[in-house]
Amino acid sequence: MRRASALAFVVMVVAAPWLVAAAVPRQQRYVLHVLIFTVLFAALALSYDLVVGHVGSLSLAHPAFFGVGAYAAAILATRARWPFLADLLAAVLAAAVVAALVGVPLFRLTEHAFAVGTLGLALVASIVANNWVEVTRGPLCITGIPKPVLGLPGGPTLAVTTLPGYYWLALAALAAVVLLYRRLTTFRLGRAFHAVRDNEPLAGAAGIDPLKYRLLAFTIGAALAGGVGALYVHYLSVMCPEEMTVALTVNLLVIVFLGGVGSLRGVLVGAVLFTALPEVLRLAPTWRLVIYGGLLLLVVVRSPEGIESLLRRASGARAGR
């Protein structure tokens, strides 16, 4: 029964472009656009949750890693004419390398200093994006980033040019992130992450090197954020410094903490609600921010642990517990 409904859900998500075409033919493009953003944000939020949710380090540097990936892909695709998969891989690696390098000194800081240090990193990255004009073109933005073409050199290729095509590409990326997220957060790795998060001195007594696991989560989280950055710029075809400001951190914090920190389902629900909702609310432009803010407050007050805990309580009640 549960398997059946899960399968139905997956079919619906995959078939969304057709469902949208049938349901709202006139707004098809717009709705698909929102869906693509939602899927990309879900992947980004999961990558962020690896750090804040599973090793419990409040990093505010995620926009920097997203930006490093986005710029790496944008520059390689436009100036060096690298194929899509190659610049995607480069984006992932570039973000991972930056994270590993800054992670070592950052994790030597205490909890609060770590948050401030990562915020500093995000600000520096944003300043660099604005001012290193020779490379990033600064506020002029990098434009003309080609649509992704899948395939390896010499083999058959597939250009992703339509909105549904792009939606499925983003969905495939999200599926990969979900699989990796689950592998990382359960079994022995997950246990080690959670031990470090819940009680660092005791983790040491258990033979766990806290720094190693913090760095691992931080670096993988950054690598995935870099990959999402690459997908993002290939979709929008431009990359500007505004894409990697602190506002992005705020969005991620809202998604992760109000969705359900450390929970796959919570973060996914958070991504859907807090990416799609602001868009839907555009229909009431005057009241948009008021409704959005009110909703945030409601969640915070009613369920400080996020929507996930509401869902869990609801399903617990249904199961008669």
């Binding site: 246990r191 080690a192 959670h194 819940d198 001195p201 005791l202 983790a203 258990a206």
Partner: peptide, 14 residues
């Protein structure tokens, strides 16, 4: 000192 959010069994497994 325990890992409060892990189950008792997981506390030992760690």
């Amino acid at each position: 000192s325990v890992f409060p959010r892990l189950s008792a069994l997981e506390n030992l497994l760690v």
